[in-house]
């Protein structure tokens, strides 16, 4: 199941509806559903944030492959940014120094079983693999 979305956080409602439909059709459990929604939002908003000027849409593909849920997010006009290599935030810093930047990607890495990143010819593809046996 694949769909393309406007490069804006305003597309999030539509994205959650799309994901929700897929989850209902495939009877995906609540824990996996929460993690995937969280990861898709964080990675989608990252694509938006790092290229505000492009008009191209961002594609989202969901599939079941064996015992895994596989999610692919594709941006055809992305700057290279590998989320798997992003530095972790300092979680023990005092409140004054805590910030939300970097936290989203850190949490995605914590929640998702496997994340792969590919970038060729302006096309960034992030693949998430999550076991359905949770």
């Amino acid at each position: 199941m694949q769909k393309s979305f406007t490069r804006s956080t305003k597309a999030l409602d539509e994205i959650f509806d799309f994901i929700g439909t897929f989850f209902r059709e495939h009877k995906v459990g609540k824990e996996v559903a929460f993690s995937i929604k969280f990861a898709v939002e964080e990675l989608f908003t990252n694509f938006v944030k790092y290229n505000l000027t492009s008009k191209s849409e961002i594609s989202l593909n969901l599939s079941i492959e064996g015992k895994n849920l596989v999610v692919r997010l594709m941006d055809s006009e992305a700057q290279p940014f590998d989320p798997t290599k992003a530095p972790d935030p300092d979680l023990h810093a005092p409140l004054e120094q805590r910030r939300a930047g970097g936290l989203g990607i850190f949490l995605v890495k914590r929640m998702i079983d496997k994340i792969e990143y590919h970038h060729t010819d302006k096309m960034s593809t992030i693949t998430l693999v999550q076991s359905l046996e949770k």
Binding site: F34, K37, F38, E41, E42, T45, L95, E96, R98, R99, A100, L103, G104, L107
Partner: peptide, 19 residues
């Protein structure tokens, strides 16, 4: 039902201001 890092950022900012 759900919160993302954007929501966490809102709460951090409010906590900093109140502190």
């Amino acid at each position: 039902e759900y919160i993302s890092s954007a929501g966490l950022g809102v709460l951090i900012a409010a906590q900093k201001r109140l502190k």
